[in-house]
Nucleic acid binder design. Structure first.
Lengths: 173, 173
DNA sequence: TGAATTTCTTAACAATTGTTATCGCTTCCA
DNA sequence: TGGAAGCGATAACAATTGTTAAGAAATTCA
């Protein structure tokens, strides 16, 4: 995990309320964010249905990574779930920082690789686990999510309806 | 896509029959392969059930990438599905080539990024699509798979049983 | 070529999930 | 602070998928 706090002088610190949209589906990402406080979700519109793809919490970097890197319209929207304090930097500044530091470039490479692995891991859990098991794993590994994130977002993240998640939760008491 | 044929002098060309295991789950990957002819699958054992994670065809690179890169035991096995002709290179030689060429290193970075995106894409399809829809997409984008790969491997790749895949196929005529 | 293995389909039943709708409860702002 | 919106539980029914089993068809290989 890259800790952008070391480069804080290059960043703008911003405070935003809950439900603030940082990036709209279809727009090209101009900024990358680092979360000092709060949580966000990355989501997209699937035939009118709101599908949450990923959650982000403190000390994580957030961006529509392929939009940011390849300058293409984002497939996702990014939105705060709580009031947040964020570090924010433009694409230009960001790549200028990368160019100045090979160590940081290496770190960025490793970070990309880790994200690759996390997608592989999530994909794998989709292949081999039932929604029930995915729920139990999420509860075990990230119990804090259930304290901070509305359940219907979690349901869409797990690939099930909120009704089904509610059933699973009450089955397991 | 990296075309390793440009570096063919560093590779061994091997011909292997179908069902040849190139890497066993639990082993550390020592080689990376480039497919000249044939197809392979990457799979793992999930509580006794054979789960196929990915298919590879001509002109693709194959390795348990995290095992190869991080020198850790592979979570997957790699196995040929057809008689194959492969280019094969050891980890040492591979990184020696990378060190010699920054262009190639950049290409490798892009390749890693593309794989990240392909996992993101696959993960996304798991989140938003029904098995039925995933089947239809696979049929549209890679119809050749159904000509070359046994159906029960495709079923496990789609996250369903071969029985269910058979039902879906015969529903859609 | 012929036996053995693999592959695919189909059936019957169980289990799970989706859909739609309703009803309290909580939270959010104006 | 009070009305509106958001959130979670539950019910009833439909649809899909899993499980197990059996048999036909295709493929493999000695």
């Amino acid at each position: 995990m890259i800790n952008w706090q070391n480069f804080q002088e290059n960043f703008d610190t911003i405070a935003v309320p809950a439900k603030t949209v940082l990036l709209n589906e279809g727009a090209v990402a101009q900024r990358i964010y680092f979360i000092k406080k709060g949580c966000l979700r990355l989501w997209f519109n699937n035939d009118g249905k709101d599908v949450t793809f990923q959650f982000f919490f403190e000390n994580q970097s957030v961006a529509s990574i392929e939009s940011f890197r390849n300058h293409i319209p984002s497939q996702f929207s990014i939105e705060t779930l709580e009031p947040c304090v964020l570090l924010s930097v433009t694409k230009e500044r960001f790549y200028a920082i990368l160019d100045k530091s090979t160590a940081l470039r290496k770190e960025m490479e490793d970070y990309s690789f880790d994200r690759l692995l996390s997608y592989q891991y999530l994909f794998l859990s989709r292949i081999k686990d039932s929604p029930q098991k995915r729920y139990e794993q999420l509860l075990k590994e990230h119990p804090e999510i259930f304290q901070r994130v509305p359940q219907h977002y979690i349901a869409s993240y797990l690939g099930i309806t909120s009704v089904s998640l509610s059933r699973i939760r009450n089955r397991k008491v």
